[in-house]
Nucleic acid binder design. Structure first.
Lengths: 220, 220
DNA sequence: CACAAAATACGGCAAATGCCGTATTGAGCG
DNA sequence: CGCTCAATACGGCATTTGCCGTATTTTGTG
């Protein structure tokens, strides 16, 4: 892999051109497309072989995070580096969740951006210092348990129907059978029957144990 | 701040000397102490003004993580960069929790280690690419809720006694009053009375709701 | 020691829950 | 068109739970 195929996504044409011109000076990158919004990017990435997308996080229409989610779904191999002007710390976590591999400030030097792209190609995860610190701070607030390696199972793996998952959600909220029935416009008796079936499938015998399985597998 | 005052902590004298010699070539760092274990480090950092500690993560006696925790407690301003030979991914998270600011492989080039220290001094959080990726992966597995800014309350904030917290833990495990009583060698009736008091203090009316508060505040 | 708080224990009762039935309806599918 | 399965609904019953008492013992603290 000598030349890195890059897609640029930014709703500001001026910035788009600036970044493009800066990157064009580096022979190790080749800009394969430019897009002005998430929809546009989603379309163009399908028609151009792409290694890395530099994605503006703040865009109208489909924003960078939604676009990242969509693109990663269709093209998991494409790496995405988020770019932001401000330190939108509330967005960092969402961007990471969406599947971004790197996270840089827009005012990084072009050489740093190219270095970051090379780092991504080598399996790294480049972040601006302030971003890296922020991720550590977020992580530091986590409990050890929540990071434990665990094989997450989908509700269908337990053979739960959609309705049953819906019921289990309400149970997890702490509602009684009657309250759940009222919410779903079915009788409390029916809710209890669903619950019986849920218990059979999950091999548990109480609301609490059922909810515990749901939480462990992040169903809600 | 021109010269960075560095402390080295490693149980392997050879590596300690190697790193020391390598760093000595850089005029922007000054090694203020070397320690061979956590205890030693904890003692020496108190007697030497220190900016950054390079800490081996695998040490006998007090390991790097415990040492980091202790040092950050006494000297919050001291930045700590963890060094590891292998990709001990299970240790990364613990190290971060303990308060490490950076996380590098030992085989990083000396110039990279110096660059990382400068990055730390500027408020960054340098990580080797593989580490950075790992932190993102950990973060990606988190639920959004668990990162939400939330004021975590201690059980004492709800006026819960130790015993009541203990009872609540068992409830969270999904045990019945009888089972809890058997485990704690008290009668089920007593467990129920404790639970009544817990409900009063937490303002809830069911096991599920009580456990939800406990989970939200990370009591177990 | 005296006092307060916490932990322990028991009784009773209404409501909720867990579990065993049965039965009807409708949607999907070969 | 039958077949299956999910969703719906109801009855009954034993157990658990939530909540109201009261009361004794233990523990900690001034």
């Amino acid at each position: 892999m000598s030349v890195i195929k890059v897609g640029l996504v930014d709703d500001n044409p001026t910035l788009l051109r600036n970044i493009g011109q800066n990157l064009a000076l580096f022979e190790e990158v080749e800009i394969v497309f430019k897009a002005v919004n998430g929809q546009d990017a989603l379309h163009k990435v399908s028609n151009h072989p792409t290694d890395i997308i530099l994605m503006d996080i703040d865009m109208p229409e489909m924003d960078g995070i939604a676009a990242t989610r969509s693109i990663k779904e269709l093209h998991p191999a494409v790496k995405i580096i988020m770019l932001t002007v401000f330190d939108r710390e509330d967005k960092i976590f969402e961007a990471i969740k969406a599947g971004a591999t790197g996270y840089l400030m827009k005012d990084e030097r072009p050489s740093r951006i190219v270095a970051a792209m090379e780092e991504v190609m080598e399996g790294g995860a480049p972040m601006s210092p302030i971003i890296a610190l922020k991720t550590l701070q977020i992580l530091r607030n986590q409990s050890v348990e929540s990071v434990k390696i665990q094989s997450v199972m989908s509700p269908t793996a337990f053979d739960l129907s959609e309705r049953e998952v819906e019921i289990l959600e309400k149970i997890a909220e702490g509602l009684t059978y009657q309250q759940i029935g009222d919410k779903l416009f079915i009788s409390a008796k029916t809710v209890r029957k669903h619950t019986e079936n849920i218990y059979l499938k999950l091999h548990v015998h109480s609301k609490l144990d059922a909810v515990k399985i749901g939480q462990k597998n992040r169903w809600f």
